[in-house]
Design a protein around this nucleic acid. Structure first.
Lengths: 217, 217
DNA sequence: TGCGTTAGTTAGAAGCTATAACTCACCGCA
DNA sequence: TGCGGTGAGTTATAGCTTCTAACTAACGCA
């Protein structure tokens, strides 16, 4: 019977083919972005014809959702592994940038333009808060940031609304630092990946590391 | 003959219909994002059938390019008008946020996930540098930012690579302030518009205005 | 009034997602 | 060893998309 078993040869074949489909999907997304993903083209690449893929994914949306989940998972693992290896916030910043540059479209799948109708499943927000947790851990360890002056209004707001931190014991100043880490690095990084700095002649890495220095000094 | 004339009734009708097409296109984009834009659906909405639109736009890409151009134009006009009314950097920050919230998909059309193959025409980068110019003007006027400590490495880099500023006489510190204004506010704003803060319970406006206070204090 | 330009039409090719119906091979089990 | 069920992959089809080609009709200018 093997109700939840995954050891039957069919299950293993199925899992392997699903992975192969996702592999081709990633290549298409890297080449032409998420809207350029075509189930038909993937099937043709794999030597099988069209509707066969619907045995493995309910449709284009489910495939993309799965890819988003994998992207979150990959980022969370990267951040967590970097943190576990003893890195501080600066190290996390470097890891984040390397991860993003490794596959810009994967970054945009997470933090890019959202599709208006789409709602992320619950487990994705779980992974997202796992990332936030790792950031909070690291933001708590460093010494207090010297360059960011007090902002009593923001810190009061953060002290009130911290249910999202899921009981994380970080003080408001660390919460603030983690949020700034997120928003400021995303600001530089997303503009760089979108190519908004090309033609301006300046090096996006300089901007990014300058922000990172401010956050971790 | 009226080689470049625009006063013939046909020309006026043509311009009006082009505007009407773009109007419907904006509604579709606001509802379902750029990938949800369909020439066919627009034609159906306007009571005419499919290929008629190709009299007015060479194709979907040209229509989207035109919309991007209009979005840049709209943002540049908003920024410039706000600056001309005597606003400082803080005022520009408020104007930017209001403009973005007015139509998030229009913001994403400019600063969102890029389509890998797409290359913006020259006049668009001209408008983009016009926006940057207005920012530089405002960044130059305020007093020196107290909260951003010196970053000699970044300022040296900015002093070297300033050909993009098109001969703008702003000193490196103002250039740096304008860049921070852009990247930091975009960081918060794009995450807010993408809905990344929903479910966290905190108010994105507090984050945005906190960053703005740091930039303009 | 007549002629040329242009708007809008239908038809059709090529691509896409997705469903339905069918065939065939494999796997477990008696 | 053979039989039956499960599931993989096929073709056909509907309906959507962009976009081209060919045709008609109307409009405006001389």
């Amino acid at each position: 019977m093997a109700i939840a078993g995954k050891d039957t040869p069919r299950e293993r074949y199925r899992a392997q083919l699903r992975a192969e489909i996702k592999q081709h999907a990633w290549e298409q997304i890297a080449a032409a972005g998420a809207p350029g993903l075509s189930l038909n083209a993937i099937a043709k690449q794999m030597g099988m014809s069209g509707p066969a893929l619907y045995r493995y994914f309910a449709g284009r949306d489910e495939l993309i959702t799965e890819l988003i989940r994998d992207a979150y998972r990959s980022l969370a693992d990267t951040i967590r592994a970097t943190a576990d290896s003893g890195a501080d916030l600066a190290g996390l910043g470097h890891a984040l940038r390397a991860w993003a540059l490794d596959d810009p479209q994967r970054y945009f799948l997470i933090y890019g333009t959202p599709v208006p109708g789409y709602h992320a499943p619950d487990d994705i927000t779980t992974i997202a808060s796992e990332i936030m947790g790792a950031l909070l851990d690291a933001a708590q360890l460093g010494d207090t940031p010297a360059d960011t002056p007090d902002d009593s209004r923001l810190e009061a707001h953060l002290a009130e609304h911290r249910e999202w931190a899921a009981g994380h014991p970080a003080p408001p100043s660390a919460v603030r630092r983690a949020l700034l880490f997120w928003t400021r690095l995303h600001g530089v990084l997303s503009l760089e990946l979108a190519g908004q700095f090309t033609g301006m002649g300046l090096d996006p890495a300089e901007l990014y590391f300058s922000e990172l220095r401010h956050l971790t000094r």
